[in-house]
Write a protein that binds this DNA or RNA. Structure first.
Lengths: 232, 232
DNA sequence: ACCCTACAATATGTCCTACAAAAGGAATTA
DNA sequence: TAATTCCTTTTGTAGGACATATTGTAGGGT
């Protein structure tokens, strides 16, 4: 098992830019800045670190991408609150990822979907249910692919949103395209898509009358074809 | 509801570096390079884009950080497979995140834990169970905090590992520190930690004799104090 | 004919200088 | 006092220069 890779830290990055990036990150944490605080200017950082402004800028460029800092023309740089999913968004493209990672993400989405129930029952409102019924009602029996995908996203997306957890919702929505990609890929090889015995309509019904365990069982049945697809 | 932020694309980034980054990313996708392929040299990219090599380097620096490209001294740059969690790792620090995000991640971990069961039952082996029993056996009744946290990580970490899903495992392990941080924070305010009625030992027992639904119920009971803590 | 070594070619890594642009702050005027 | 103009400061961009490492190649030795 390649467990080692996770336990042992890969040796320190080599280029100055990498070092500066890590120093800066360390610096930001140590000084416990509050978002909005002004940071030293680029030249000062460069002098303090003993490198050129160029290297500092490359490192800062990375932190800026992660949303850790904000820069304004004359004010200098301000500490910001990173958008944790922003960086994921950039990388989470089916075309860029390896086969193993794609499989992992496919499973991860199933896990997230199965764990949904408790949050859902904690926060669902009658308005939410009404919205879901509306979505289900629009699901005509048109099972051609583009429509099916659209309905999937509408329905499950609404479920994520009902949790009131923005991070969870965004995360799931980012995972969906990867999920669909893997699905397409496997379907082309193995035949066409099966659909679970429990439909969206059934799930809504459970939401109205059942408890979180019922819902979880329903979701499991809904996703059963996907689980069956998983190789042991 | 700030749903808009997720539906509408924020306006195009302003600096050249941002533009170049997005152009490069687009270029990489469009040309559908295979990992290992050689990319044009920096100067060529700069010329083609009509910007200075400096700007190109800042953009490349970002992609390098995300693991999308690798550079060797004379070979030029090679396309690589990004490590999707690598970038998350950099940002997922309790001290850097906002209050809402911390709460979201706290919940996200619960969701992930609740969705664990199916993968677990698909892949668990007798050796895994033995390892779990070993871990539980070492859980002396020493409930002081540092030890408790260590046991938590050992036990739940093993569960993640048993799923055989590397991404899931790493993701969960990254979430744990944030989880503990929030827990500490709330405990200081509200009193001390309750512990669920179902213990690690019980969970192992269920793994041996029960099915995935039993396990899920057990996990829910195990995590009950945390769920109770969630505000509606 | 083969291997080893040394050198040249090349792409990235780093530094430096200079200037444009934007934005805050100060000074000036109504 | 309020509005306007100018100045200063800091980031953004450009371009040139050189160090460094690595690859490929040529040459020499066996």
């Amino acid at each position: 098992m390649s467990d080692l890779k996770n336990d042992i830290r890969p040796l320190e990055p080599s280029t100055m830019t990498d070092l500066v990036e890590s120093r800066l990150r360390e610096y930001l944490k140590r000084k416990s800045f509050v978002p909005g605080d002004a940071l030293p200017k680029e030249q000062e950082l460069a002098d303090a670190l003993g490198v050129s402004r160029n290297v500092v800028r490359e490192a800062l460029s990375r932190l800026r991408m992660l949303g850790m800092i904000d820069t304004r023309k004359k004010r200098g740089m301000l500490l910001a609150q990173p958008d944790i999913l922003g960086s994921l968004e950039r990388v989470l493209d089916p075309l860029l990822l390896g086969k193993n990672t794609l499989k992992d993400i496919f499973e991860l989405r199933l896990v997230l979907e199965m764990g949904l129930a408790d949050l859902l029952y904690l926060r669902k409102t009658p308005e939410d249910i009404a919205a879901l019924e509306d979505i289900v009602a629009r699901e005509v029996n048109n099972q051609q692919k583009p429509f099916r995908v659209e309905h999937e996203i509408a329905f499950h997306g609404k479920l994520y949103q009902m949790t009131g957890n923005d991070t969870y919702m965004r995360f799931q929505k980012m995972l969906l395209p990867v999920f669909e990609y893997v699905l397409d890929f496997e379907m082309q090889a193995n035949g066409q898509a099966d659909v679970g015995e429990v439909t969206h309509r059934n799930l809504v019904e459970i939401l109205k009358t059942g408890d979180s365990e019922d819902f979880r069982r329903g979701m499991k049945a809904h996703l059963k074809p996907h689980f069956d697809r998983l190789k042991v």
